[in-house]
Amino acid sequence: MKYTEDHEWLRVEGDLVVVGITEHASEQLGDVVFVELPEEGRGVSKGDEIVVIESVKAASDILAPLDGEIVAVNGDLADNPALVNEDPTGAAWFFKMKVADLAALDGYMDEAAYKALIG
């Protein structure tokens, strides 16, 4: 598992990267009430705002962590946004993307570095 400074987790699954938000991020957001997901098949560039999460408090974005293509989105989140609070690192994955270069993941933090970041 790799982590971004924006509190996303990235998990390699075959030749795909699965993306969600960390437990820490989900706690900070508070109760999630709405998730807007990208379209499957959409090409994205690193840094694109591709998911909107609305909590009881505010809206926040999830950025594309890498260049690539969205190949699957988690439709369960549309019906049950609270999954993001209940199981952020499991059932509440947001999207799976095919990336040009899996080695680009190496630039992200490992678990120890992420834990140090959030203190």
């Binding site: 508070g30 109760d31 009430v33 009881v56 408090k57 609070n85």
Partner: peptide
């Protein structure tokens, strides 16, 4: 206090 451990929704 904006919220306690229960969270805003609960």
């Amino acid at each position: 206090p904006v919220q306690y451990p229960m969270g805003v929704m609960k």
